[in-house]
Design a protein around this nucleic acid. Structure first.
Lengths: 340, 340
DNA sequence: CATGGCGATTACATCGATGTAAATACGTCG
DNA sequence: CGACGTATTTACATCGATGTAATCGCCATG
């Protein structure tokens, strides 16, 4: 019962169908000059033997695997797992398989993805970086097609897909201002440093304040270690320690916002009575939290679609066309946490 | 600028170091009979050229890749993304790389994982099945080592890792009973059919009722389509339509529970005032929800560790030892939603 | 000094699939 | 009926790494 026939090879199929291995290969790859009759015979042999192409052999020969890699910092950040779902769906539609890779936001692992070390089986990489440095992109091995998501360590070098972070943050802030909020804190924000997502969103926030003629208070910008619930909870606690209290929290992702909501609940602050809370990403949890969360919803299907398209284009024509920067749409979804 | 040197091959390294390709291979694979001198020269050549082994070539020759696949239904179900994190960490510790695969709970895709179709690069698979049938396991290709998580379509056939679902559900139910709850509904439950996780947990629930001398009311068991927030919300709504209302909800995962919490909030029911709510999985969201969620916490690190260990054993010795069934620990974490 | 023995190194074949180029089959036309 | 062109099919080499078995070099021993 333990002795199973070995997986059939292309030559087993050939023998069974009474043709040469190359003819089997031709059938598999839809080469047009194969008679209907042989094609049928080969198909039958394939079915009969349960033959599947050995991808290692194929890759060795033609250097393609039909697989692409999606490398994200953390899968338990819902934005990334939701995005992964869309990317897989889109890739499926295009006849590709997606391998998912977790970098934990560690530069070394992002570099590994960028260089295809752990991902040699992949024809290209969609990478959502956190710690990559500008020079990592310019010194990278240009042979592996790469599309960056979200963060962009430097201008040029790779195709890029993301939303207009500055505008999104400005709009979210304007929403809070229009509700009469004046002391808006930014959880997860960054005032200086790289033009990362945090910095761009903080810039958008500042623009909105400026337009409204309000002063910018650096004390209201609270950096965080990671974009998780507990960091949001902690940041909210810290903000409530100091006087005067903020009257709104602009949280740079939904996990931070949901963590903050919990802290406010524990401290007896009413949302949206005492404070408004806004997040980014529109993860599923935000529709069901109590109160439900106002959030900036990036167009995830569009992001996934653009990323896969750009990557496949690069794979098919490595040095064609100029670098693309696809700006995906976003919209503010107003829910209970800001009076919706 | 676009002309980059091709990725170096083993023979390029050989030429650079002035030795044969096989000697380079020997160095890479830590073959012991290589002089210190040659070894150093080869190492230097490898560094100088930035050589990395081509895994396709290696796999073709030795049939191993050093990669394992984790196939789960949906990454945006937090339990699975959290588990994925632990599996990756453990695999990393053991010097393996994990490829993640999403089956969407579709039998066809689970079969694909089981047969290594999309996962040929992988030495083995850790699969969390939903729709697999018993015969799928017995008729599967025995050459790909497989460890099943959670559901177990049939006795035997593969190694298995999971918690004691019956006992866990019984304990959770006992907890509710001890708080005086008498009309406990089961969201996501199943009274008959395969011995899936849902069925086992429902059985545990029934056992607890029986021990307490309470009647079993089939109307309190509400099946769901999927284990997502919205299904929990919908099921809770349905339960509130009918009289008499339940006084507790045993939800078979945390997403269902959190969705139900939202519905109860919308309908003005107080938790744990009017009803208690309990979930399964202890995802991060449950610590921060309002109210925080009582839940059965499976020992995820233990599950991940056992799964990886069993799989690596099977890979190293395909037909050694009998089939293992590792029962991982669990504990009930009582939080606000049941008076904690 | 010839021989044996052992460690270090290498030549060659091979894993599976497919590109190239050559061979074969088939049909058409003079 | 034979030559030629086109449609199919095939033989062979190749992708990169490594197992096998053979060879080489060196030292100890008789």
């Amino acid at each position: 019962m333990n002795t199973v026939a070995a997986r059939p090879r292309i030559k087993d199929v050939a023998r069974y169908a009474g043709v040469s291995p190359k003819t089997v290969s031709n059938v598999i790859n839809d080469f047009e000059h194969v008679s209907e009759q042989t094609r049928a015979a080969v198909r039958e042999a394939i079915d009969a033997l349960g033959y599947r192409v050995n991808i290692a052999g194929r890759q060795l020969r033609q250097g393609r695997t039909g697989m692409i890699t999606l490398a994200v910092p953390e899968l338990d950040v819902a934005y990334f797992s939701e995005l992964a779902k869309h990317v897989m769906a889109e890739a499926d539609r295009r006849g590709r398989t997606v391998l998912i890779h977790q970098t934990e936001g560690v530069r070394e692992r992002e570099l590994a993805a960028l260089h295809g070390f752990d991902t040699q089986f992949s024809d290209g990489v969609i990478l959502s970086p956190l710690s990559l440095l500008p020079r990592d992109l310019t010194t990278r091995d240009q042979r592996l097609p790469v599309v960056l998501l979200g963060e962009r360590p430097a201008e040029g070098g790779t195709d890029h897909v993301g939303i207009d972070n500055v505008r999104a943050a400005r709009e979210a802030t304007e929403h809070l201002l229009s509700r009469g909020r004046r002391r808006i804190a930014v959880i997860g924000g960054a005032v200086r440093g790289r033009q990362g997502t945090d910095r761009l969103r903080t810039d958008g926030y500042r623009q909105a304040l400026e337009v409204a003629g309000l002063p910018f208070a650096p004390g209201l910008v609270v950096p965080v270690e990671a974009y998780h619930w507990q960091d949001g909870a902690r940041a909210a606690s810290a903000l409530l320690e100091k006087e005067p209290h903020p009257d709104a929290l602009l949280c740079l992702n939904d996990h931070l916002a949901l963590g903050a909501l919990r802290t406010l609940y524990e401290r007896g602050r009413s949302v949206p009575g005492d404070l408004d809370v806004v997040g980014f990403d529109d993860i599923e949890a935000s529709r069901f939290s109590v109160p439900s969360l106002t959030t900036v919803a990036p167009d995830k299907p569009d992001i996934a679609k653009a990323a896969v398209s750009l990557l496949l284009e690069r794979i098919d024509e490595p040095d064609a066309g100029s670098l693309q920067d696809h700006v995906a749409g976003h919209r503010l979804i107003v829910r209970e946490s800001s009076g919706g």
